[in-house]
Amino acid sequence: MSVRRGNGPGLRRSMFAAPYGLWMLIFTMAPIFIIVFYAFTIGGKPTLENFKLFLEPEFVGILTFSLWLAFLCTVICLVFGYPTALFLASRDLKRSAMMAVLFVIPMWMNFLLRTYAWMSLLEDTGLINRFLTFIGVGRKKLMYTENAVLFGLVYNFLPFMIFPIYSVLKRSDLHLEEAAQDLGANGWQVFLKVTLPLSLPGVVSGVSMVFMPAVTTFVIPRLLGGGSFMMFGDLIENQFLTTGDWNFGSALSLIMMALILISLGFLNNANPEGEEGALW
């Protein structure tokens, strides 16, 4: 049987979308409507109280802290990730596919397991401190700090920065760089005027793939920060699991979603070609 494009009987293209459409309807659209309902009601009555409550300084403080930490994490991932992607994508690198696989392998382990492993490395009686004591430097406070949380985020999300950039660079047309060189551009000029602009779609999707999970994360800061650094994800979890205030929790989730949508829109505008990155 062949696939027809017309309106005649038989298979139609729109039918292929049906399974996912149904999935979306049940598992994406319906929950969002439920969240919106809870966010704008208390005890079933419509109200804006939940959003007003959010304006209290401690809640705004938690949000700004999360945004700041996620921003730092994204910047660090970009600083480390971009050169790594350039290295992996360079034409003269032998076995670059295998190198790329080596970067993915750690991700096959559950991130909780990896974070627990870091805990036993970083704690006061952990391996790193034992080594520092042994060579006479003495114990350093490595765990339960803001830097430990930041480190945990960067460690877990770095691959999400490297791979979108890597795959865009890998696909880009080598001849463009050669042409730039033929026309007299030096190495830096080629990078700034050709390679970098071409890789922007990858950077954009890398940034959103790191920033979004970083700003909503809640397990990593609890483990590496010892419950002392509350992030927005922790706050939402607290509303649902500790106080059982689904209304306020839903309002917080909506605020989070709105922020993510705004930052995505901003990122898409920053993408000059309008071309989507490899993973989005």
């Binding site: 401690e58 809640f59 403080g61 938690i62 802290f65 419950g227 002392s228 650094f229 509350m230 922790d234 706050l235 607290n238 500790t242 106080t243 205030d245």
Partner: peptide
Amino acid sequence: DIQRYNRVWLAVKSAR
């Protein structure tokens, strides 16, 4: 009153 307790708790947990 758990709600008022929780506000105190959140203030403590998010203090820096």
